[in-house]
């Protein structure tokens, strides 16, 4: 892969106990690039995200971040290298306020463009709700907190798992509208989606997963609808 590769994954096999969820997945992200990973439910998308940050068991894989193999590192050491994950279902800290959730995200104190004030200007509604318990927010606002919390770590690579799952269409549009302002800061991103339309609009490249394997890779403009739906559904 090119020198500008930020993340390179080779031969990723991931397991939950004896159940294998990913089979020989290979994937690469270049600096500044936005990637969409699409696929149906249980295609292995979330497992891929968790494997990158060391939350699932892997075998035989090489995961290189800025040319350094991180596959054997503990989660907290991987994220310190500059990877942040917005987990599926948002999973805010329920006993922490909105602002405390953001502060928890920034606790590693990595240098970068993101701080409480820049997050609040990205999602102004959060400034109003800063003192409220995080779980009192609506689903869309919670997703904003979750994204803000991940950005507070000033990551070089931002992973967003199931960005739009369970959110109202208008909220999804707002969040996608904010994404270019994130990537404009030089942050690379991998966005995992079941709903492909929005993701394809912001992505530079797209990977499709089915049954734990990569079934398609390309740029959104070069791929036909038919190619995508056959990779997605396997028909």
């Amino acid at each position: 892969m090119a020198d500008s590769a930020l993340l390179e994954i080779e031969n990723l096999n991931a397991f939950y106990g004896s159940f294998q969820a990913l089979f020989g997945v290979a994937l690469g992200v270049r600096a500044g690039e936005t990637l969409a990973v699409i696929g149906a439910n249980s295609a292995g998308k979330s497992t891929l995200m968790k494997a990158i940050v060391g939350l699932v068991q892997t075998r035989g894989a090489a995961i290189r971040f800025r040319a350094e193999n991180i596959v054997a590192l503990e989660t907290q050491d991987i994220v310190r290298k500059g990877i942040a994950l917005v987990p599926e279902g948002r999973r805010l800290f329920r006993s922490l306020s909105v602002e405390e959730n953001l502060q928890a995200g920034g606790q590693m104190q990595r240098k970068g463009p993101w701080s409480l004030s820049t997050i609040y200007s990205l999602f102004p509604i959060l400034r109003e709700k800063r003192a409220q318990p995080s779980i009192s927010l609506s689903g869309g606002q919670q997703q904003m907190v979750a994204i803000g919390r991940a950005l507070m770590a000033n990551p070089d690579l931002l992973l967003i798992d199931e960005l739009s799952l369970g959110l109202a269409p208008i909220v999804i549009r707002d969040i996608y509208a904010a994404l270019p302002r994130v990537t404009a800061q030089g942050t690379s991103a991998i966005i995992v989606e079941q709903d492909t339309t929005q993701a394809l609009a912001v992505a530079d490249r797209v990977y499709c997963l089915r049954g734990g394997r990569v079934t398609l890779e390309g740029t959104p403009t070069s791929l036909s609808r038919d190619a995508i739906s056959s990779a997605y559904f396997g028909v």
Partner: peptide, 18 residues
């Protein structure tokens, strides 16, 4: 804050680098 975050969700706390 760190202790409460870890208590709420140990896995996500690790994602914050705790």
């Amino acid at each position: 804050r760190a202790l409460r975050a870890t208590s709420d969700d140990p896995e996500v706390a690790r994602l914050m680098g705790y």
